[in-house]
């Protein structure tokens, strides 16, 4: 993990309050990044925001030396990020967390399930899986039509089904409803999204090996403060999401 000063290369709005950022990062570092890892990004340069913000790595372009993040503007920190312009400085801790260890897996067909701001890390994951010749089916869920992003990108990599909670686009309902309807074939699943979604998926797909990416409020982002813990399934211990996660095997921790 490195603490680095860099700058913004491009910024654009891709859906309702959803921002895509390309950040300049040297090739050597990009080559070490695993899908599912995140950056811990400083907000401003004063003492106003003492905590950084964790944002997943959505894509990596090694040739152009760019890293892509996609985030939703929710509170003050993400709103401030959105005011940045091309060339503005950024300070990152990168890469954080363990990521999806796909090199250690034997599979031929992966199911990717994303909800809202959990969708971005699945994009780089999908690209890496396809690169290895693994078939990818994606199910992504959003609140509403305006929130939908990356549908075309995922369609370029395999089947992609979209759900919206209010039914304004794609299938109405949750991603679990879509799994029910489409009955996709797969060996392993990879999910990222809000905890209730992950819990529902874990309960539904009990017969398959899966990997879940979790979120929690963080302090240090590097494993030193115990802010971001999640109890292990047996509740006898805990794991740190920033360091042991954010990706866990299904059944490993108690969501």
């Amino acid at each position: 993990m490195k603490l680095m000063n860099t700058h913004l290369h491009a910024i654009s709005v891709i859906a309702e309050k959803t921002i895509k950022m390309d950040i300049v990062i040297e090739k050597k570092l990009l080559e070490t990044i695993r899908p599912g890892q995140f950056v811990y990004i400083q907000i401003g340069s004063s003492s106003e925001h003492m905590l950084r913000r964790p944002i997943s790595i959505a894509d990596v372009d090694i040739e152009k030396e760019l890293l892509t993040l996609v985030y939703k503007e929710l509170g003050e920190g993400t709103r401030k990020l959105s005011q940045l312009k091309k060339g503005d400085p950024l300070n990152l801790l990168i890469p954080c967390g363990n990521g999806y260890r796909i090199d250690q897996l034997q599979l031929s067909h992966a199911l990717l399930i994303g909800g809202g701001i959990g969708v971005p890390p699945l994009y780089y994951l999908a690209k890496k899986l396809v690169e290895k010749g693994i078939k990818v089916t994606t199910i992504i869920g959003f609140q509403s039509k305006e929130d939908v992003f990356f549908e075309e990108e995922f369609k370029g990599l395999g089947d992609c089904f979209v759900t919206t909670n209010d039914g304004s686009y794609g299938q109405q309902g949750y991603v679990t409803d879509s799994i029910e309807k489409e009955q996709p074939e797969f060996d392993n699943y990879f999910a990222c999204g809000p905890n209730p979604m992950l819990k529902a998926i874990e309960l539904k797909l009990t017969d398959k090996k899966g990997f879940l990416s979790l979120e929690e409020r963080m302090g240090c982002g590097i494993g030193a403060c115990y802010a971001c813990v999640v109890p292990t399934k047996d509740e006898k211990g805990s794991k740190k999401i920033c360091q042991d996660g954010p990706v866990f095997s299904a059944g490993e921790v108690k969501i």
Binding site: L51, R217, Y226, C228, V229, S238
Partner: peptide
Amino acid sequence: LGNSTPRV
């Protein structure tokens, strides 16, 4: 084991 989350 400490408190439940959110802790910060």
